[in-house]
């Protein structure tokens, strides 16, 4: 199961990012463990400067915007 973390301080864009990933994962019937990281310190330690950012299995794959659908599908597959 893929472990996906959305990094961001809880802004609307971060919520939308998490929602988009959850929806698309459900559509494709791919089980994921989705969590959110809101602590400023953790975001700093991950080296993220633009939120929302997305980590898949510990790898930073996206930063700075709500990801496009094709990106999310690529991470899930």
């Amino acid at each position: 199961m893929k472990e996906i973390v959305v990094l961001g301080s809880g802004c609307t864009k971060c919520e939308k990012t998490a929602d988009a990933i959850r929806t698309i994962a459900e559509e494709l019937a791919i089980p994921v463990s989705l969590s959110k990281e809101t602590s400023a310190e953790a975001i700093m330690l991950a080296g993220v400067m633009r939120t929302p950012a997305v980590m898949v299995d510990g790898q930073l794959v996206h930063s700075g915007s709500i990801p496009h659908r094709q990106d999310i599908e690529a991470w899930l597959s």
Partner: peptide
């Protein structure tokens, strides 16, 4: 606009 100030501040500082 797309990024909030805190991660930028911390990114620069760290």
């Amino acid at each position: 606009c797309s990024c909030s100030s805190i991660p930028v501040f911390l990114g620069f500082t760290s």
